[in-house]
Design a binder for these strands. Structure first.
Lengths: 344, 344
DNA sequence: TTTTTTACCGAAAACGTTTTCGAAAACACC
DNA sequence: GGTGTTTTCGAAAACGTTTTCGGTAAAAAA
C-alpha cells in the first residue's frame, strides 16, 4: 500500500538509512556483504526512490518542458517525437504544453514550467508573440532554454532552425531554372519570422535573376486548420487575377495540395502550365497526383538536435561552466517530384 | 540567482516561515496586515513555491503520465491535444512517452512514470502487448490508470473506447444498404483488439444480412508508416484475385486512400464499380477525390474524456472514497461522402 | 481587578532523500 | 601491547514546504 522507503529497508535489516542509501548507490565505504543484502531486499520489496525527495535534495528533476504552438501538425509532431526519443535516452521526461498560437497561453505555460522547476525548456513561439519579456525572464533565472523553428532573433539563447530564407531561395531558384518567369508566392501570415524569411528568400531569388518583383503575385494565407481550403481559394483567385503565372512557391505543403486540387479541377495542367513547389515535405506530398516538389523540413532531426543542445547546456550549468549559446542551422533539401518540370 | 524561499521572505519581514506560509494560503489565524505585507513582498520577490518540497509534503505532484504508441498520427495527436487541454484546465501537467508499438518500451515507461510518482496514468497499448502484468502492477499500487482506444479487456480499470465492432457493423451495413453484395475487408494486424473488433463487426453485418462470409475477401495490412502503399498493394491484389467485389470496408482512412489512388490509376470507377468505406475520418478524407465515406473516430473528445475520468479517480482516491471504474464508449458516426453510392 | 475569550504568531515535526564527518571496529605492523 | 592504518558504519544536517499544537498578548466579559 504505502510506498517502501529507505527507512523500511533499514529497519528490516537493522541498519541505518545512511548505509542503505549508500549501499544502493555503490558507495565504496559499505561492505560487499551489506550491499548485497540491501540490494536484494530492495528488489524484493520493489523499492523505488521517492522522486520528490531526491529532487528536493539534488535540485534537479530530470524533467524538461516543451511548449509548442500546435500538436496536431505533421512537422511539430515529428519534432516532439525526436525530442522524446533523445530525452528518454538520457533519462529525462518531457512535459508538453500547447500554446495554441496564443501569446498569453505561452506565457502562462512558461510560468507553469518554471514553477515545476524543470531542468530546461524548449519552445517554439506562437504566431502572435511579439513581446519577449517572458523569455528573457527565463534566461535571467539561469534556466537553460532552447528556441526552435519559430524563434525570436533578439532573444539571447541557443536556437535550432532551418535556413528558411535559403530554402525559399532554393525553391524559387528551382522554378526559375526550369524556365518559369512569372512566379507567384502563397505566403504564411505576416508575423512569424519563418513566414517572413521565406518571403524574403523568394524575393531575393527573383532579384538575383533580374525578375521584377510584383506584389500582386503574393497571396497570404493564415495556415491554420483551413490551409487546404486557403490553397484552393488562393489558386482560384490567382487564376482570376493573372493569366500569365507559370510557377508558384507555396509556404506549406497542405496549402500547395489545396492549390493543386483546385488546378486539377479547373483543368490547369501541372506542371505544363503551372509548376508548383511546396514546403515541409509532408508525407502526402509524394502520394498525391501529381506528386509535389517541395522543401524537406527535417522535423525529427530538429527535435533530436533541440534536446541534445538543451542537455549540453544543462550539463554545463551543473558543472558551473560557461554555457555557450549555439545557433544550429539544419540543412534543408529540395525534393523534386512531378509538380515541377524537369530541368532541361 | 538562487530561487527565493519562504525563509527569505520571513527574514526580510522579521517573522517566521510558518506565518509566511499561512499568509500566502490565507489561513484565518494571520492578521490582514501581515497577510498584505507577505503577499506584497512575495510578488515583488517573485516567489514561486518549490514544487519538490510541496510534493514531498502533500504527496501529490499535479502531474500525470501518458503512454501512447505513436505521436505522429492524426488520431493520437488529437487525443494528446484533448488530454492536455483538459489537464491544463485542472492545473495538471502531462508527461508524454511513446512506446513505438513495443511492449518492452511500454513496460519501461510505465516504470518511469511510477518512479516519477505521477498522480495518474493514461495509456493506449502497443500492438504487441499480450502480457498485462505491468498494468496490473499499477492497479495493485493503487495508482489511478485509464486505458483508452487500444485496451486490454481483462485488466480491471476504467476504459475509454469507441465501439469498434458496432462502428464496423455500421460501415458494412451501409455498404449493404446501397446494394453491395461482395464486400471485401482490409483489416489491421491480428493482435490489437480494435482491429479484431472491426473484423467481427464486419462479419456480423454480413451474417445478419445472409451474405456468406468469404475469408479470401479479407486482406491484412500492418497499418504502420507504409499504410498508403499497403492500401495500393491490397487493392492491386484484390483486382487480381476477384472480379466481382463491389464494396470494401477498410480499417483505416490512409489505407483506404491508398486503395482509392490505385483504383483511380487502374480506371476502376468509385463508387460506381466499387464502393469504399474507411475508418477514422482523417481530414484528408474529405479532401481527396472522390471524397471518402468513413467512420468518424473522435480523438479530441476521447482525450478530454480520458483525462476527465482520470481526474475523477484521482479525486476519489484523495478523499478515500471507493473509485468506481467506468467503461466509457464514445459514439461514432458514419460520414457519407462520394466513395459510396447514395442510398436509393 | 480578575477571568475568559479571541486573535495572532511561532516552534517543531514531518515528508524521504543525500552527503559530510566523525567514530568505532578490525586489521596490520613494529 | 601499543601505534597506525584501513574498513565499515551511523548521527545529523540539509533541501523547502505544510500543519499541528501550544503560547502570548490583547480584547471582552465578569
Amino acid at each position: 500500500m504505502k510506498p517502501v522507503t529507505l527507512q523500511d529497508i533499514a529497519d528490516q535489516l537493522g541498519i541505518s538509512v545512511t548505509t542503505v542509501s549508500k549501499a544502493l548507490k555503490d558507495y565504496p565505504d559499505v561492505s560487499a556483504k551489506t550491499k548485497a543484502l540491501v540490494k536484494e531486499l530492495a528488489t524484493t520489496l520493489n523499492y523505488k526512490p521517492n522522486a520528490f525527495a531526491v529532487n528536493l535534495r539534488t535540485k534537479e528533476s530530470k524533467t524538461v518542458g516543451l511548449i509548442i504552438p500546435v500538436i496536431v501538425h505533421h512537422f511539430f509532431s515529428n519534432v516532439i517525437k525526436g525530442i522524446i526519443a533523445e530525452a528518454e535516452a538520457k533519462g529525462y521526461l518531457v512535459i508538453i504544453l500547447q500554446s495554441n498560437e496564443r501569446y498569453d497561453m505561452e506565457k502562462k505555460h512558461l510560468d507553469l514550467l518554471m514553477n515545476q522547476r524543470v531542468d530546461g525548456i524548449m519552445i517554439s513561439l506562437a504566431n502572435d508573440t511579439v513581446d519577449f519579456k517572458h523569455l528573457n525572464d527565463v534566461i535571467a533565472a539561469d534556466k537553460p532554454m532552447i528556441m526552435f523553428d519559430k524563434i525570436a532573433k533578439t532573444v539571447n539563447c541557443s536556437k535550432v532552425i532551418i535556413d528558411d530564407r535559403q530554402a525559399a531561395y532554393d525553391a524559387t531558384q528551382h522554378l526559375i531554372d526550369i524556365g518559369c518567369q512569372r512566379i507567384a508566392h502563397f505566403r504564411g501570415s505576416l508575423l512569424p519570422q519563418n513566414s517572413i524569411d521565406r518571403f524574403l528568400g523568394y524575393r531575393k531569388a527573383l532579384r538575383d535573376n533580374d525578375i521584377p518583383y510584383d506584389a500582386s503575385l503574393v497571396y497570404i494565407c493564415e495556415c491554420d486548420d483551413l490551409s487546404f481550403e486557403e490553397g484552393q481559394n488562393n489558386a482560384r483567385q490567382l487564376l482570376l487575377d493573372h493569366n500569365d503565372v507559370d510557377g508558384i512557391f507555396i509556404n506549406t505543403d497542405l496549402v500547395a495540395i489545396g492549390a493543386i486540387s483546385e488546378f486539377n479541377k479547373q483543368g490547369i495542367k501541372i506542371p505544363e502550365q503551372i509548376s508548383i513547389v511546396g514546403f515541409s515535405n509532408w508525407f502526402m506530398s509524394s502520394i498525391i497526383s501529381p506528386s509535389l516538389t517541395t522543401i524537406d523540413q527535417p522535423g525529427l532531426e530538429m527535435g533530436r538536435s533541440v534536446f541534445k543542445q538543451l542537455y549540453k547546456e544543462i550539463q554545463q550549468l551543473k558543472r558551473d561552466e560557461k554555457v555557450d549559446y549555439q545557433q544550429i542551422v539544419l540543412p534543408t533539401q529540395l525534393i523534386q517530384r512531378d509538380s515541377t518540370l524537369k530541368v532541361k
